[in-house]
């Protein structure tokens, strides 16, 4: 009796927890089953190599700016670190950018 009381809500929770996974599986299956619709007669979309190259360049163009931002953030981080730990005499460490080169 008491075990029943405990188990029933637990199993409902389980099902609720499994639901997103189930939905995702269904969605992915449907997506995987989708057949190509080759609408544009002049866009080389029927050519598998062209389609792959579109996908590849889409990935390249999307990732690259994020990598650049990450690089900028990293540079900024190091630059600020350098500024914080900089010695009192910036001339010696070559820190002061406004100094002219002699």
């Amino acid at each position: 009796m008491s075990t029943d009381d405990h188990s029933r809500p637990a199993s409902r929770d389980d099902r609720r927890r499994r639901r997103p996974a189930l939905l995702a599986t269904i969605a992915l299956t449907v997506l995987g089953r989708a057949a190509p619709a080759l609408a544009c007669p002049v866009c080389f979309a029927a050519d598998e190599r062209a389609r792959a190259s579109y996908l590849d360049t889409a990935v390249l163009l999307s990732i690259l700016p994020l990598a650049l931002f990450a690089g900028l953030a990293l540079w900024l981080w190091r630059e600020l670190d350098r500024g914080r730990s900089g010695p009192a005499e910036p001339e010696v460490a070559g820190l002061s950018g406004d100094r002219t080169i002699r």
Partner: peptide, 23 residues
Amino acid sequence: GIISFFVWAHHQFVAGIDPRMAH
């Protein structure tokens, strides 16, 4: 800002792009 780099091809759903890309 980050996701905005991953959405642009939704303008081309009828242009004959790869359905995998469209999804």
